[in-house]
């Protein structure tokens, strides 16, 4: 099942990357005489209200979300791992300080921070820069949960027998950290990464629902999901539902890549 999930994700990523070559229309091209067209030979998923090819926009949106969400996750996990590991490893006042910052970051509503930060950003940025800034902000603000988990895991490992034995055998603290501790924390880091990816995609989707996500004309899965509100009245249910299906597939595939819970068959 994991292979299937990984294969699906790779296929999605390839389709997103090759989207420009697979479809005849650009994602921002407005066919103004063909607005709200139903799926057909020219537009496989129809067109949106401005006459833009839904399939081209779906692949471009997937490219944006499926490439930048993992990048934001890497950033968030790197920050979370650095702070969580050092807090767990050094303990004392540093641990207390980091824990306080983590609590603070978790208690502050991330959307309010994002909206505030976006309001003070320079206006004249291209859509590509805008989407990168959005995901950069998500990465910079979304590390706290991972840091808490990694700190806890680090403390558990520090109290385990193999670390005590290594230290008793005369291993240096650096060697214990790099050779023993980090490899044992790797599954935790990997899990945190996989959990964070769909989280960031959904965060960007929520920002887009507020109209504060990726700038026009660049699409993202989030901005495309906004149109689901028209589903009850639009005859083009396929074109409107496709982003949701793609997002569900990507998130589902990520979930299958997670290690099984203990005791699960």
């Amino acid at each position: 099942m994991k292979r299937l999930a990984a294969g699906l994700l790779i296929a999605l990523a390839l389709a997103a990357l090759a989207g420009e070559f697979l479809l005849p229309a650009r994602y921002d091209q407005q066919f103004r005489e063909e607005t709200d067209a139903l799926p057909g030979a020219k537009h496989p998923l129809g067109t949106d209200e401005l006459g833009r090819d839904r399939a081209a926009r779906l692949l471009a949106g997937a490219r944006v979300s499926l490439l930048l969400a993992p990048a934001a996750s890497v950033l968030a996990i790197a920050l979370g791992a650095t702070l969580g590991l050092t807090a767990g490893w050094f303990g004392g006042w540093w641990d207390r300080a980091v824990s306080t910052v983590i609590d603070l970051m978790i208690s502050v509503p991330i959307f309010l921070v994002l909206i505030t930060v976006r309001a003070v950003l320079p206006l004249n940025v291209s859509p590509v820069s805008s989407v990168m800034i959005t995901f950069l902000l998500l990465g910079l603000l979304g590390w706290a949960g991972s840091a808490r988990v990694i700190r806890g895991a680090c403390q558990t490992q520090l109290n385990s027998d193999y670390v005590l034995r290594a230290l008793a055998a005369g291993c240096s603290r650096t060697r214990v950290l790099l050779v023993h501790l980090l490899p044992n924390l790797w599954p935790v880091l990997r899990t945190q990464f996989i959990v964070a990816v769909p989280g960031f995609i959904l965060d960007e989707a929520n920002l887009s629902l507020l109209g504060l996500g990726v700038a026009e004309p660049l699409p993202s899965l989030g901005s495309l999901l906004k149109e689901l509100t028209n589903l009850p009245t639009s005859p083009n249910w396929l074109g409107l539902a496709a982003p949701a299906v793609l997002l569900a597939t990507a998130v589902g595939a990520c979930e299958f890549l997670l290690p099984p819970k203990e005791g699960a068959s």
Partner: peptide, 19 residues
Amino acid sequence: MIQADLAEIGIRVNVVTLD
């Protein structure tokens, strides 16, 4: 739509939505 129209005469427009 204005962004697309102005692109035809070579003007680049960035659309920014703010609260």
